[in-house]
Amino acid sequence: MAISQKLLNEGEHVIVTTRTHVKALFLPIIVLLVTLALAIYLGTFGDGTTGKVIDIAVWVIAAVVIVWWVVRPFLSWLTTSYTFTNRRFLARSGFIAKEGRTIPLNRISGVDFEIGVVDRIFGCGTLVVSDASEQGRVELHDIPRVEQVQLKVSDELHRLSEQRHDDGA
């Protein structure tokens, strides 16, 4: 899960790195179980050639459902990471086609968190990174231990702010 060292500049180190909470996989797991149960049940209909055709059709449909609603979300979860270094925020995702966003820490104006009732049960929440760009804010949903992440990032932003203030004085 940690970001590759080749993506870090000289003197840059990781403050915190995380990915979405595993609760993001609950729905795909339910879809997997329901799809398999339905496929097994529907595969019992028909005898002879008709039964084989029904069985093949059911399992082809089940495979498409599993790939689209189970494998794809799992790979997305597995290959997405959020990293704060002492210089920038990096969001990276993708297995074959990659996507990323980088925000320098000195452009981040605030890091907030939101925790709903369900999030509280699972120990996660939404981290909101506000910056000075046109997009304005990045919402990172279902971040594990979101309060600790927010605290670490806020401490680093404060340290960076003091360092800039001391250098300018």
Rank of each mutant, 00 (worst) to 15 (best):
M1D: 10
M1V: 08
M1E: 13
M1H: 13
A2D: 12
Q5I: 05
N9K: 15
N9I: 01
G11S: 06
H13Y: 12
H13I: 02
V14D: 10
T17S: 15
V22S: 13
A24G: 15
L25E: 09
L25P: 01
L27V: 12
P28H: 03
T35P: 08
L36S: 08
A37W: 15
L38N: 12
F45T: 06
G46R: 09
G46I: 12
K52N: 12
I54C: 04
V67T: 05
V67C: 05
W68K: 10
V71E: 03
R72P: 10
F74Y: 13
L78V: 01
T79L: 05
T79R: 08
T80G: 09
T83S: 09
L90P: 13
G110T: 03
I115Q: 14
I115F: 03
V118E: 02
V118F: 15
V118S: 13
D119N: 12
D119V: 04
F122R: 01
G123E: 00
G123F: 02
L127H: 04
D131Y: 04
E134H: 04
E139C: 01
H141A: 11
P144D: 07
V146L: 03
E147R: 15
V153M: 02
E156N: 04
L157P: 10
H165A: 06
D167Q: 13
